[in-house]
Amino acid sequence: MPNSSAFLLLVISLLVTIGGIWIGQNVNLLPVDASSNAPIYDELFKVLFSIGAVLFLGMLAAVVYSLIRFQKNPEDLEDGLALEGNLSLEIFWTAVPAVVVLFVGIYSYDIYDRMGGMQPLQTNGHDHQAMHQEQRVWGGIGAGPVESDMSKIAAPLKIDVTAMQFAFLFHYPQGDIISGELHVPKGQPISMRMESKDVIHAFWVPEFRLKQDVIPGQPTILNFTPTKAGRYPIICAELCGPYHGGMRSTVVVEEADEYKEWFNKNTKEVISEL
């Protein structure tokens, strides 16, 4: 291969690597992050996006370069190089993806752990209920960093979620509130126990980067800690019937005092105590 094209290749691969990493680090495709879980997710996303962008641009460049560089004119009946393989090259491009995939796997395990995915479900405070009914409870991602002091100090606020065609109902056992809108105080760990009355639904808040199916006959747990005040959509993500697209609600993340106000206005227990 002549020197000029070797130089060109070097330039292309440099551009691909730098461009890919730049795209992965700087192009933001995600909505606002509003839970303790979301920044961890975005960290993973950036890493995967950077690796993916480099790989994709590299393959794209290799294909386009080959098609231009090795194109022949129609009269040319000669064959190309009789190159049937190259063992060391093939070992190289088996090993590199294997290492990358291994790295991605270990890294995402770490992220999963930091999101609380590996925590035993007993820690979320629902164990009594679950054991009492002799049901297995699944889910549990989103508890956030275990080592954080917040989750140790503040006991998680428990909310029971019931999904049905085509609405979510949120029950606050503490104040016996039933609401169609989810109100949560900022910075407070939340633990939701979810069950469906009819078909499978899914609870998804894009700004929290969390989703968990809500299943009939099979309670699931979803934990999160909201970090930014605001109103975010709750979306059903599992096809549940004709009005599936309309099955939406809102999660309102409020400052502690605003939440208190809402709580006091809606709670039945306080009224009965009075």
Binding site: L44, G52, L60, G105, S108, I141, K211, Q212
Partner: peptide, 23 residues
């Protein structure tokens, strides 16, 4: 397919998937 494969590896990661699954 390379693009589809890359998003596929991303989707295989549980923490990534819990956001974009069924979207």
């Amino acid at each position: 397919f390379v693009l589809g494969g890359i998003t596929g590896v991303a989707l295989a990661q549980v923490p990534f998937d819990v956001h974009v699954h069924d979207t």
